[in-house]
Design a protein around this nucleic acid. Structure first.
Lengths: 275, 275
DNA sequence: TGCTTAATGTCGAAA
DNA sequence: TTTCGACGTTAAGCA
């Protein structure tokens, strides 16, 4: 389906050859990488100049340009996106000019010597970038919103010491049964099931009369773990960490706005009092 | 003196070969670039997961690691610096783990297929990165510190309309002569000289009696411009934008501290008044 | 499009 | 080492 990426590599190309290839690469929207001795000038929101040195230059199909020095995390110069990129040969150097529309900015890279030039075609990357919450955050969120596990749950306690460990969440369901909730950020395995079971058993020992449920909350569960879980009379509730993350973020923001409103409210109030 | 950088390039290496080369590159602190199909996981201040896709991976000698998707300015995953990077072969994939000490963070890149692997040695980049001030900032700084142009200058006005344009700075020298100052951020050319001359002439027309000097302030000047300038009886004062930038930054900071002190002083004062 | 806010922000300098 | 402020911040979510 997706054809394999193809890379064209030039070692120490001459100026003319490098210029031709870079121009073609830009025109064909290749993903390009250059290792080169170059100078860089930038002018736009700020202005900067960088004398000759060996650097990595990246030109992406969408016009993003990055110049990286041999050390350090952040690029020394860049262009988040280019409206136009043009390539010229000037006095034994390839000059790459990237112009951004708004804000109006220009990045000029003068390549004096190209050690390596790579044109990559057909790179495909459609994977979704997922930002997780960590286990504590998921647990916090569930404690605030127990309905994502089951309707009608009432939280009793968090991180309660039971036997040798700590139960993530202890709650009561609508029928007043105790519910032990164990949260996992990633695929739950048999260890997670055993852990949950040990808490449930400890609580049963302490409260022989009360019916005690155990729910394992995780984005997924291994086959073996599910079999073990069922055989032990425990339950599994699937959650979507991405969805939770988004919800939590929304909540965070609205909470922030609310506190600002509260602040403004109080300010108004104090003003009123003075009048 | 500085030996020419050397690049070692592998096309579509096998897993074992890639792992060996990457491990060597890490050990030898090479600057490494990989184009590969990979998956990435991160956990530290945040946590994320990225499924398989074609990406550019950069590993710098100082342990900075960057993972770039085919589009966009910013890396999808990164590590500003690594305390340790280790390389393993696991189930037909090279696994690169970068661990950061503080904050404790781990970045795991699982390379399923390496299209291109580059090890670069001997990249040298000692150039100073210079951030300029723009013309207005230089002009502002000179207005605050006219001594960088000449001792004893007294600023009369800024951006005064003269003829068809605006004089950057108008001042008086110690002998009470008018001084027209034209500021250029970059190498001044003949146009700059002509511009300055036109202002000087306009002022001379308006004040036939007064002796009027003209000073062109710029980091450098072209040969032709200097000749023209001299023939027109104008002057050139070289400034170092780097130095100015640094001075201005210092000033900004001390100004900030001063205003904070003032603030504290006023606070004390108001407290004293209440007592 | 412009504005506001969070970020694995990063980075540098002062305390 | 921690804190603080600036940044060519960038990037996402809304009005």
């Amino acid at each position: 389906m997706s054809e394999k990426p193809h890379t064209l590599v030039l070692h120490n190309p001459g100026i003319d050859e490098a210029a031709r290839e870079i121009a073609q690469g830009v025109a064909q929207k290749d993903f390009m990488i250059m290792l080169a001795r170059c100078s860089v000038e930038y002018e736009g929101r700020g202005a900067s100049k960088l004398g000759p040195g060996d650097r990595l230059i990246i030109v992406k199909p969408d016009g993003a340009v990055l110049v990286h020095r041999p050390m350090g995390y952040s690029p020394v110069n860049w262009q988040p996106e280019s409206h136009v990129i043009n390539v010229d040969v000037l006095k034994d150097a390839v000059v790459l000019r990237s112009v951004r529309r708004r804000p109006k900015e220009i990045l000029v890279i003068r390549l004096e010597q190209v050690y390596l030039l790579v044109r990559a075609k057909g790179l495909t990357d459609k994977a979704e970038f997922i930002e997780y919450m960590d286990e504590a955050e998921i647990s916090d969120y569930i404690a605030r919103h127990p309905e994502v596990v089951e309707q009608g749950l009432q939280i009793i306690s968090r991180e309660r010491r039971v036997g040798e460990g700590y139960v993530d969440i202890l709650a009561r369901d609508r029928s007043n049964n105790y519910v032990v909730i164990e949260v996992k950020r990633i695929t739950a395995n048999e260890d997670a099931v055993k852990q949950l079971y040990s808490y449930v058993e400890e609580l049963r020992k302490a409260n022989p009369e009360a019916p005690i449920r155990g729910i394992l909350v995780a984005p997924s569960i291994t086959k073996d773990a599910l079999i073990l879980l069922n055989s032990l009379g425990l339950e599994y509730k699937q959650i979507d960490p991405v969805k939770l993350h988004k919800e939590a973020r929304k909540e965070k923001q609205s909470k922030h706005s609310r506190s600002l409103l509260e602040y403004l409210g109080k300010k108004e109030e104090s003003l009123r009092r003075r009048r």
